[in-house]
């Protein structure tokens, strides 16, 4: 009995060793690429001087001096509201769309068709945002834009999109979804086709029709992936797609109350002053908020279903 126990213990130890051996390259990389530079976060509390470097530069007086500019402006409310509102909308709508597409693809017959559709819907993801900005201009421009041409043809009055605030939330949502749906559906698709077909057969035998099969087989199979992806997106809740919010409005600043996010504000504010400390402070805050949010939600998820938690 003791012999077998020892044998098991030994086997366990070897297994552990081998598994950790596998993780060495990744751990090395994480330490070098991510953790060593993390020490540089102190820049957020310093007056960074290029000659004195990170550790030689003087501490900022007061210590949080690099952070105040984010809050002193009355636009602070705007940019935080914009960032959070857009991100939450993007996460919710984006996941729903991606899941729907993945499930639809899964139920489709005809491999050739499937392949073509999959390739085509990926195309928007590959186009860089700067170019998307020009394409959007092709749609929204007052003189030659396709949208305005249609409005005029229907008897309406031209809309100057680039100086009107009201339409931009919708415009951003449409662009974001258009750009991402092909790409995000890939992950869900890969997971969906991994679901054991025997489960579907079993459900069909029990008399379930297609929507019921989706509800009872597909969605539970995707549960872990959905939770994981949403949790990871929450970590970036204070960040935003700079290209989308800065380039697409074609630098029209008159609408910035609805188009500026934190990243855009920081970029605009700091381009002329080249203040490393202040931009580091902005990143610091974005990270902390995302971190706290993820940790709290992860704790909740752990209580409900330990498997799906990130850590």
């Amino acid at each position: 009995m003791q012999k077998r126990k020892n044998k098991n213990k030994a086997a366990h130890r070897i297994m552990t060793l081998e598994l950790y051996l596998m993780m060495i390259p990744g751990l090395l990389y994480l330490i070098i690429n991510n953790y060593i530079p993390m020490g540089g976060l102190v820049i957020a509390f310093k007056q960074f001087n290029y000659q004195q470097g990170i550790f030689g530069s003087a501490w900022k007086d007061p210590l949080i001096g690099n952070f105040t500019y984010l809050f002193k402006t009355q636009d602070a409310v705007n940019i935080i509201r914009n960032t959070l509102a857009y991100n939450i909308t993007f996460i919710v709508l984006g996941q729903i769309l991606a899941i729907t597409i993945a499930i639809m693809l899964n139920f489709m017959r005809g491999t050739k068709n499937k392949k073509i559709y999959q390739t085509v819907i990926l195309i928007p993801y590959l186009i860089s945002m700067i170019v998307v900005a020009y394409i959007v201009f092709g749609f929204l421009s007052t003189e030659t834009g396709l949208v305005n041409k249609m409005i005029v043809a229907a008897g309406g009055k031209k809309i100057n999109f680039y100086s009107t605030k009201t339409y931009w939330p919708l415009i951003f949502i449409v662009i974001h979804l258009w750009k991402g749906f092909g790409y995000s559906s890939i992950i869900y698709y890969a997971t969906v086709i991994g679901i054991d077909s025997a489960l579907y057969e079993a459900a069909a035998i029990d008399g379930a029709n297609v929507p019921q099969q989706i509800w009872h087989v597909t969605l539970p199979g995707l549960k872990n992936t959905i939770i994981t992806l949403v949790l990871m997106s929450l970590g970036g809740i204070m960040y935003s797609d700079f290209g989308l919010f800065y380039q697409v409005p074609m630098r029209s600043t008159i609408i910035s109350d609805v188009t500026d996010t934190i990243d855009v504000f920081v970029f605009r504010a700091l381009t002329s002053m080249n203040d490393v400390g202040r931009s580091s402070a902005a990143g610091f805050i974005q990270s902390i908020v995302g971190f706290l949010l993820v940790v709290s939600v992860n704790l909740i998820v752990r209580k409900i279903d330990k498997e799906s938690a990130l850590f």
């Binding site: 500019y69 605009r268 002329s272």
Partner: peptide, 12 residues
């Protein structure tokens, strides 16, 4: 800080 805020308004 005020200078940054003013620059923002100016840009608008």
């Amino acid at each position: 800080d005020e200078w940054t805020a003013c620059t923002n308004v100016l840009n608008k």
